[in-house]
Write a protein that binds this DNA or RNA. Structure first.
Length: 471
RNA sequence: GCUCUCUUCGUCUAGUGGUUAGGACGCUGGCCUCUCACGCCGGUAACAGGGGUUCGAAUCCCCUAGAGAGCGCCA
């Protein structure tokens, strides 16, 4: 039997990190076992499902590279099949029509709560003959006694008493099927062997197993993965900032970094932290996933992203960085090759957004010197070295503007003036970058270029002059 | 309220009766060094609490507490 997993989001919002991790686990499990991964859109809730959400989910999956072998299948396209199954259940006496008014149900619930009981439908219509032409819902006739064993791949055996379960609605009064019915039919029809989903579905599982059995299907294996919580340990929500996968793309994270972060949330393989997709597929096993919920920790994601930024092919990073440069009004074609900037800067940024920010100086003059840096390095004592550097640079031919020559010039000035390299390189750095942090001085000079270097040194000299005798 | 689930450093985790309770992020001390960053070396910090079982419990059992989920004509 070949393994078949499915990711089945409901299109009522974007793809969030919890869903993405579930999808990743489904993907990895299928790939590991040479099986198939199918995508199914659970849009039976006509009220809340939107095309925008479908697109957002698809976009998120594509960005992460979680490609599916089949689908996306839409449940709204399968209503005939669900109704066929419902009719079958009705015919076999395994389901029945119910016309209990909402008021009655509400009162029942309130009374049960008052009696400290679990609210559940009392089976009132089980033996009533409800007119099929009048408004009604259809309920599944859940077994009254016995236990359902959910043998979960992550949590082990979980027995549920049928007494705790009630006769759930499988078709609404408007004729549409409900979730518990459609999942079951789809999982059976699509021959899903392993249902990997959030643990908020644990309590649904025994009901679904009962429906499956009533229909004569063998239940799939289940694996309920724990939730992802926010940094503060509370359920992940908008107030934790980003939850949408796409927002991580926009904040400048690499998809492989997010995937790596997500796979390690609730799962591990010895002491290994960095996993390529291939390594994940090789090492992953759903039964190794943790039972407890875990908190999302942005600083670890940052670290991973930085690791990937350094490892990744500079030309690819450059391509991904380009739109972020655009967002801060920089056209990378107007300056040094963006891939060269990436090579010089990648280890200095946690995200592409940050990489763009710290690289802006390569493409345009900065507005003001960073106050602290200027105060410390653009002092009167820096005037002479800057003037000598400027003079030397000015004499350099375009083809001499190389790292070797530039290093030679800077070192030459420091030797000539009997100053530590830092006393020369730092003022120069602040002069041409605007602040005291940048790649090695010759690399920085290469990226800035001769013309801008001279212009910015002049600006720094002007700053020093304006400062006068101070310091 | 009822049912179900979960509980090792701040966070992610290793650990399945005998370990100085390991690793990673973060924080922190140092090295490297023209700055920042990277990198390297070191430090900080945990078995929720209480009872058992056992020669011996993070590991097995029970209770308590805390956290989460479900109890919809949502999925």
């Amino acid at each position: 039997m070949t393994v078949r997993t499915r990711f089945a989001p409901s299109p009522t919002g974007y793809l969030h990190v919890g869903g993405a991790r579930t999808a990743l686990f489904c993907y990895l499990y299928a790939r590991k076992h040479g099986g198939q991964f199918v995508l199914r859109i659970e849009d039976t809730d006509l009220e809340r499902s939107t095309a925008e959400s479908v697109n957002a989910i698809l976009e998120g999956m594509t960005w992460l590279g979680l490609d599916y072998d089949e689908g996306p299948f839409y449940q709204t396209h399968r209503f005939d099949r669900y109704n066929q199954v419902i009719e079958e259940l009705l015919d076999k006496g395994l389901a029945y029509r119910c016309d209990c008014p909402k008021e009655r149900l509400e009162k029942l619930r309130v009374d049960q709560m008052a009696r400290k009981q679990k609210p559940r439908y009392d089976g009132c219509c089980r033996h009533k003959q409800v007119d099929p032409n009048q408004p009604h819902v259809i309920r599944f006739k859940n077994p009254a006694d016995g236990v359902v064993i959910v043998d979960d791949l992550i949590r082990g055996r979980m027995p549920f008493a049928n007494e705790e379960l009630d006769d759930l609605i499988i078709r609404r009064s408007d004729g549409t099927p409900t979730y518990n019915l459609s999942v079951v039919v789809d999982d059976a029809d699509m021959e899903i062997t392993h249902v990997i989903r959030g643990d908020d579905h644990i309590n649904n599982t025994p009901r679904q197993i009962n429906i499956l059995r009533a229909l004569g299907f063998e239940p799939p294996r289940y694996a309920h993965v724990p939730m992802i919580l926010g940094d503060d340990g509370a359920r992940l929500s908008k107030r934790h900032g980003a939850v949408s996968v796409i927002s991580y793309r926009d904040m400048g994270y690499l998809p492989e970094a997010l995937l790596n972060y997500l796979v390690r949330l609730g799962w591990s393989h010895g002491d290994q932290e960095i996993f390529s997709i291939e390594q994940m597929i090789e090492a992953f096993d759903i039964s190794d996933v943790n039972k407890a919920a875990s908190s999302f920790n942005t600083s670890k994601l940052d670290w991973l992203n930085q690791q990937y930024l350094q490892q990744a092919e500079p030309s690819r990073v450059a391509r991904l960085l380009s739109p972020h440069m655009g967002r801060i009004d920089i056209d990378p074609s107007t300056g040094p090759d963006l891939a060269d900037v990436v090579k010089a800067q990648a280890a200095r940024a946690k995200t592409l957004v940050e990489l763009a920010e710290i690289s802006a100086f390569c493409y345009r003059d900065f507005e003001d010197f960073d106050e602290g840096s200027a105060k410390k390095h653009l002092r009167l004592v820096a005037r002479e070295p800057l003037e000598k550097l400027r003079a030397a640079f000015e004499l350099m031919a375009f083809e001499d503007w190389t790292p070797e020559q530039l290093k030679h010039v800077v070192e030459g000035v420091s030797e000539e003036l009997q100053l530590n390299l830092g006393k020369v390189a730092q003022p120069l750095r602040v002069a041409i970058v605007g602040r005291a942090a940048s790649p090695g001085i010759e690399e920085t000079l290469m990226l800035v270029g001769k013309e801008a270097t001279l212009r910015r040194i002049d600006k720094a000299l002007g700053y020093i002059a304006a400062r006068g005798g101070e310091a």
